[in-house]
Design a protein around this nucleic acid. Structure first.
Length: 234
DNA sequence: AACCAGGACGTGA
DNA sequence: TCACGTCATGGT
């Protein structure tokens, strides 16, 4: 078997320093109940830092899957608006999504951008969701769904189903290439492999890692720091 | 007022 | 495989 993270690696040290500096991120965010969930900033509620017993039911699980699709190339606050619109119309579930005419669905999720495309994607997700009824879907099965690519598939497996599946994204690529941890241009799979080989194989680590990368990238942009290997202040 | 967000798909080299 | 255009609203 492959020796994974036998010794502490630069990536592992990086992860530990991010966790120490930023704290647990409480991903995947869910819609707050009456807007009173513990929160990070602004109106963004639904994070549950340090709590890992999520999702707690089928509704939360589907909410995560829907959010994973809606957040494609889109800032989270916009996704949250779309999710709220769906919830307000009692349509944040596969049954209603399949019943709704696609144009109506598109109108509800309009704030998340690409609303026509994503309306179709949500319908594909909904029928898949009913088809695979609660059991954790394989990565291949997810990739067969129109509108679900590598990152969305991995996000669904890691955050909605608690599977040991690493998620990487554009931020990960930027940071890893900048620190020369991977040769550029790095493929999605290459980035993923670098993480898997250098981090402890634990679901909570994977969940925090991806969330911390996103947080780190946002702070880098805000503070314009030059050393990307260390945590940044907001 | 550009620029870019927690990507994925379709197409043509 | 890989590069490139397309999809679209909203925040900074």
């Amino acid at each position: 078997m492959a020796a994974r993270q036998k010794h502490e690696t630069p990536l592992h040290r990086f992860y530990l320093s991010l966790l120490d500096a930023y704290g647990p991120q409480g991903w995947w965010p869910l819609l707050g109940h009456d807007g009173v969930n513990p929160t990070k900033t602004g109106s963004i509620t639904g994070y549950h830092p340090g709590e890992y017993a999520f999702p707690r039911n089928a509704a939360e699980r589907f909410e995560i899957c829907a959010g994973a699709v809606l957040t494609q190339n889109t800032a989270w606050p916009n996704v949250e608006k779309a999710l709220r619109n769906l919830a307000a119309s009692k349509a944040l579930n596969p049954e209603r999504i399949l019943e709704l005419p696609e144009p109506d669905l598109a109108t509800l999720i309009r704030p998340s951008g690409y609303h026509n495309t994503k309306a179709r994607k949500l319908k594909e997700l909904a029928s898949f969701s009913l088809r695979s009824k609660g059991q954790a879907p394989s990565r291949e099965a997810l990739l067969d769904v129109w509108g679900i690519g590598p990152e969305t598939a991995d996000s669904i497996r890691l955050y909605a189903y608690g599977q040991l599946e690493m998620v990487v994204d554009a931020y990960t690529r930027k940071i890893f290439e900048r620190l020369a941890w991977v040769p550029a241009p790095a493929s999605y799979e290459a980035l993923k492999q670098h993480c898997v080989l250098n981090l402890p194989a634990e679901v909570t680590v994977y969940q925090e890692f991806h969330a911390l990368i996103v947080e780190h990238a946002k702070r880098l942009k805000a503070s314009r720091i030059e050393d990307w290997s260390i945590p940044a202040a907001r």
